[in-house]
């Protein structure tokens, strides 16, 4: 299952935090900070899987136990991220999730945001963080993925209410920041990487 979804920008400012377990606020911040320092030091050519941050790393003695481990455990073991322009999208999950599929899941999330906001950028997410949560809520409930279809997600959010565009006077440079959307395929997202 998915244990947490995090979105923060290039300077580590959180834009969305969703923990599927109850976690102390201070620990949440600590974890965000640890993951940020891990992720911000990675070159873009590196793969999209992070080593476990110190807070999540198993105690050093744990792996030495000789008894055979079951295939899966409840322990979060996978930190997947993707970096889009100014934002990092992070998924923390257990081994029951497929690493490559999680990368696609982030892509679906971003694409659905793009549809909702029409050429989404960080400002949209800052000013509409309720919508951001709503979109996530259409995809993941309680750490389990409920939907991966772009259209269903978008229409699910739209039925909950009108999605506001970001205020025009806040946009620096107007429409100059033209989205380069279209490079990525639409529709069936799990069609192959």
């Amino acid at each position: 299952m998915i244990n947490a979804v995090l979105v923060f920008n290039n300077s580590g400012q959180p834009r969305l935090t969703k923990f599927y377990t109850q976690l102390d606020t201070a620990v949440q911040q600590r974890l965000i900070s640890e993951i940020f320092s891990l992720v911000s030091n990675r070159p873009a050519t590196a793969c999209n899987f992070l080593p476990l941050p110190p807070l999540l790393a198993p105690p050093p003695n744990a792996q030495k136990s000789s008894q055979p481990q079951p295939i899966h455990t409840d322990t979060p073991s996978l930190v997947t991220y993707r970096h889009y322009a100014t934002l990092y999208f992070i998924l923390i999950s257990t081994s029951t999730e497929s690493p490559l599929a999680l990368l696609d899941l982030i892509q679906v999330f971003v694409e659905s945001l793009d549809r909702l906001f029409e050429n989404v950028c960080e400002l949209d997410l800052i000013f509409n963080f309720e919508t951001l949560h709503a979109a996530l809520g259409e995809m993941i409930v309680g750490g389990v993925v409920v939907e991966t279809n772009l259209d269903t997600i978008v229409s699910g959010v739209r039925t909950q209410g009108k999605v506001a565009r970001r205020p025009v006077n806040d946009s620096r440079g107007g429409s100059s920041s033209g989205g380069v959307f279209g490079v990525l395929g639409r529709g069936e997202v799990f069609s192959g990487r």
Binding site: S11, Y84, A85
Partner: peptide, 22 residues
């Protein structure tokens, strides 16, 4: 809660290809 990072444009479309720096 810092507003946003210096010198970065939060309006950059997220769909602009994933960053590449060497």
């Amino acid at each position: 809660a810092v507003a946003d990072s210096d010198g970065e444009d939060p309006e950059t479309s997220l769909q602009a290809a994933e960053n590449i720096t060497q």
